[in-house]
Amino acid sequence: MEPKRLVIVAVGGQGNLLASSVLGEAALLTGIPLHMSEIHGMAQRGGVVESALVFGDATSTIISDGEADVLVGFEPAETLRALNKCNSRTVVITNLAPLMPFTVNIGQGVYPDLKELQKLIQAKTAKLIAFNAADMAKEAGNVLAVNMVLLGALIQTGVLPLTTENVKEAMKRKTKQQFLDSNLKAFDLGYSAAAAAA
């Protein structure tokens, strides 16, 4: 199978690693090779977390600049920061709810304008799907389900060789029982949002 390369960027605490592990489990269920790696630069202390997932016939666990087929950003400024991973055929999915970096909070930097940010990404890549995933997570009844909202959108794009069914099964295995319903709902909301954007 032609390799498909996914980069996920997030801020520590946004549940990026859980999202990767759900995708990993889904790949295992589907029977497609997967190689992935993650770098969490002191994530718990507010740093950035980056995961690379390579599905299909490749053996590398990292993704070079310009080589992502799809980029999922859990936080808009982080999506923009990771734009160097994309090429003109990359599909980009981003949450639009900002988490202010501390440097901005104390007046040492300017947060990028969200409209401008979307325009830039749109102009440079194949497709941008952008929405407020935090609101949808809230709607699903679990503020921590931003990761599952974005997973829903990711699966909707069909870039990855994974079915909704397998991802939901993986969610059952990998996420906490008490959050399963809200997580599944979050997934569906993200899925619909991406479908509406198409």
């Binding site: 507010g46 740093g47 080589e67 090429n87 003109s88 440097t103």
Partner: peptide, 22 residues
């Protein structure tokens, strides 16, 4: 010819997010 990464020269600087004491 390596795959062309998007040109990020006109992307405004994204504020740093260094790890910090909790």
């Amino acid at each position: 010819t390596p795959p062309a990464a998007v040109d990020v020269s006109d992307v405004p600087p994204v504020p740093q997010r260094p790890p910090t004491l909790c």
